[in-house]
Simulated assay, not measured.
Amino acid sequence: MNQHHVCAAVFSAGSWGTAVGKIMADAGTSVIMHARRAEIADAINTTHRNPGYFPDIELPQALTATTDPAAALDGANFLVLSIPAQSLRAGLAAWTPHIGPDTVILSLMKGIEIGSGLRASQVITEVTGIPACRVAVLSGPNLAREIMDGQPAATTIACPDEDAAHRIQKACHTPYFRPYTSTDVTGCELGGAVKNVIALAVGIASGMGMGHNAQAMLITRGLAETTRLATAMGAHPATLSGLAGLGDLVATCSSPLSRNRTFGTHLGQGLSVEQTTAATRQTTEGVKSAGAILALAHAYDVEMPITEVISALLHEKVTLDQAAAALMQRPPKPER
């Protein structure tokens, strides 16, 4: 099949979905975005801009939009999912009848489902009945704003089927966006989910006026606890020191463009969870997933002290000062 006949349906038209839609269109893939709101779909089709997220960036001609899920999925080689992790199950239930028999699903989601503790790829296979070899995940240090500006970035595409991973790689490889492939879906998804919680901790430290030493400590120890959980769940340790692990962690923890870090900064400055949620328009996956990740840690008997403190703070079981003290005062012991 020639590259220009490759089609991708992107659900939905949020910031990261729009960025990946732009990447794929720039790579020669035809992209149809599914927008929930008619005015967003109309604006994308008539002005080639997404007024909700990137009003200043012109989108490629090969990218169009619709509010009709069946129309978006008609003939799609790839279904790219970029919706809040907690809405995935309900969304998929409605869309599954329209997914073609050979469509490969690509998850951009970085959250853990509350209650079930499932990663996005697991929710996808459970709801759709599509085998795991047709479900891939994309994860790396990918801040949407920088990618929309054409800034260079790399990512990891993980799928149990290497051929499917390579087809996705080809469909989103551009001069500014370099995808690597992997078969470690578990490692990629856990790296993406846990780093949001660590970014909240780094944001809190920053908001409280702590310096780069404290932030680097949290990033480093955060990577250690992420790796402990991921390897306990069957991931390869090398994945966590790669783009989907360390790479994504560093970008999310150090950039003011990161919504999780920004959310943490507001908390560190003394705003409540409610006030911060009201101030943040977009989904902050770390806030939603922290409790679910902690439940996984308990299930796999893994120590995750940073996740534990952040979860307690979000559920108002500890004060900000208690949380800060707990993050900084771990009992001294050998590092390894």
Results as ranks from 00 to 15, higher is better:
residue 257 L to W: 01
residue 257 L to V: 12
residue 258 S to K: 03
residue 258 S to D: 01
residue 258 S to H: 08
residue 259 R to Q: 06
residue 259 R to I: 00
residue 259 R to L: 06
residue 259 R to T: 02
residue 260 N to Q: 07
residue 261 R to Q: 03
residue 262 T to K: 10
residue 263 F to T: 09
residue 263 F to Y: 13
residue 264 G to E: 08
residue 264 G to K: 03
residue 265 T to F: 12
residue 266 H to V: 00
residue 269 Q to M: 14
residue 269 Q to T: 11
residue 269 Q to R: 12
residue 270 G to Y: 09
residue 270 G to V: 12
residue 270 G to D: 09
residue 270 G to Q: 01
residue 272 S to D: 06
residue 272 S to G: 06
residue 272 S to P: 07
residue 273 V to H: 07
residue 273 V to R: 00
residue 274 E to T: 12
residue 275 Q to P: 12
residue 276 T to V: 05
residue 276 T to A: 03
residue 277 T to I: 09
residue 277 T to N: 10
residue 277 T to V: 09
residue 278 A to F: 14
residue 278 A to G: 12
residue 278 A to M: 15
residue 278 A to L: 14
residue 279 A to V: 05
residue 280 T to W: 04
residue 281 R to S: 15
residue 281 R to Q: 15
residue 281 R to K: 15
residue 283 T to S: 13
residue 283 T to I: 09
residue 283 T to V: 12
residue 283 T to G: 04
residue 284 T to P: 03
residue 285 E to L: 10
residue 285 E to Q: 10
residue 285 E to C: 07
residue 286 G to I: 03
residue 286 G to W: 01
residue 287 V to Y: 02
residue 288 K to T: 15
residue 290 A to P: 06
residue 290 A to C: 11
residue 290 A to T: 02
residue 290 A to K: 02
residue 290 A to R: 01
residue 291 G to T: 15
residue 292 A to C: 10
residue 293 I to L: 01
residue 293 I to K: 04
residue 294 L to Y: 06
residue 294 L to K: 05
residue 295 A to C: 08
residue 295 A to Q: 11
residue 296 L to Y: 02
residue 296 L to T: 01
residue 296 L to F: 07
residue 297 A to C: 15
residue 297 A to E: 07
residue 297 A to K: 04
residue 299 A to Q: 14
residue 299 A to R: 13
residue 299 A to I: 07
residue 301 D to M: 10
residue 301 D to I: 14
residue 302 V to M: 09
residue 302 V to N: 10
residue 302 V to D: 05
residue 303 E to A: 15
residue 303 E to S: 13
residue 304 M to N: 00
residue 304 M to L: 08
residue 305 P to T: 09
residue 306 I to A: 00
residue 307 T to K: 02
residue 308 E to A: 13
residue 308 E to W: 08
residue 308 E to V: 04
residue 309 V to R: 09
residue 310 I to G: 05
residue 310 I to H: 04
residue 311 S to R: 10
residue 311 S to P: 00
residue 311 S to I: 02
residue 311 S to V: 10
residue 311 S to G: 12
residue 311 S to A: 12
residue 313 L to A: 04
residue 313 L to Y: 01
residue 314 L to P: 01
residue 315 H to C: 14
residue 315 H to Y: 14
residue 316 E to G: 11
residue 318 V to W: 05
residue 318 V to K: 08
residue 320 L to V: 10
residue 320 L to A: 08
residue 321 D to L: 12
residue 324 A to D: 08
